[in-house]
């Protein structure tokens, strides 16, 4: 079976979530949600994986209002979370506010949401942004919604562990405050990654290729996980099913 690019991303997310007890994803985040659902399916019977989808009534067990997610993170009960960002820089600073001089930004984005707290309190924050371009991955963000690293005296059990884009996976080294290229997704190469990345990063002379999922994982993904996902993200699931059908018919006529 051939994996779609998005399936490789989802399986990579599930790998990054190995060992979590409780993961939260934002409201409009179908791929992180799929990755978390795959993690839960892979760990079925071994360990419970709790998943909170913010803004969802069905996939949300909180009973103390929107403050409870943050309180649970402060208590150390939230192991993993995803952050995007209009801009992400080489020190893993995240900008969710806008481009240009603050406050009258040229481009204004919605705002920082809970980033300035969850980036400090959640041990495994995964930066996920599909667009891998110099306008997103910048040398220095225009506004720090949440800093990638902190001074040693600042209470910070949490922070970034990885940056996943449509082209590559980077790991983040908190001591050095920098990214290292871990693997390149199939179909992309190092020159392309360099040209598309606005910050400097470490890399091996011949970087690894991001692993593609095995047949068992793919069938779990296209069965149980896709069904679960369709409840919360029907449009995304329908498009995915359509792409799978197209791939099958292309394979049949090739």
């Amino acid at each position: 079976m051939t994996a779609l690019p998005r399936e490789i991303l989802i399986c990579t997310i599930a790998r990054l979530l190995d060992g979590v007890r409780h993961v939260a994803v934002g409201a409009s985040s179908p791929m992180p949600a799929a990755g978390a659902m795959l993690r839960r399916a892979l760990d079925d019977g071994a360990r419970p994986v709790r998943l909170s989808i913010l803004g969802s009534v069905e996939h949300n067990f909180f009973t103390n209002g929107s403050a409870e997610l943050f309180d649970s993170a402060g208590q150390g009960r939230l192991d993993a979370f995803f952050l995007g960002g209009g801009q992400i820089d080489g020190r893993a600073n995240v900008n969710l506010v806008g481009v240009g001089d603050y406050p009258q930004a040229k481009v204004r984005w919605p705002g920082s949401f809970g980033s300035a707290y969850l980036y400090f309190t959640v041990p495994r924050v995964i930066l996920f942004r599909e667009e891998h371009s110099p306008r997103v991955l910048v040398d220095k963000v225009d506004f720090i919604s949440a800093p990638g690293v902190s001074e040693p005296d600042v209470h910070r059990p949490g922070g970034p562990v990885a940056l996943l884009t449509s082209k590559a996976l980077f790991g983040f080294d908190r001591a050095r405050a920098g990214f290292a290229l871990e693997s390149i997704h199939p179909g992309h190469d190092l020159d392309e990654i360099r040209a598309a990345t606005g910050f400097a990063f470490d890399h091996a002379a011949a970087p690894a290729t991001t692993p593609v999922p095995d047949a068992a994982t793919l069938s779990l993904l296209r069965g149980r996980v896709l069904d679960e996902l369709a409840e919360t993200y029907p449009a995304f699931a329908a498009q995915w099913r359509g792409d799978l059908a197209a791939m099958t018919s292309e394979g049949a006529t090739a």
Partner: peptide, 9 residues
């Protein structure tokens, strides 16, 4: 509250 330190917020 925790967090916030080092942010432009």
């Amino acid at each position: 509250m925790r967090g916030l330190i080092g942010s432009d917020i």
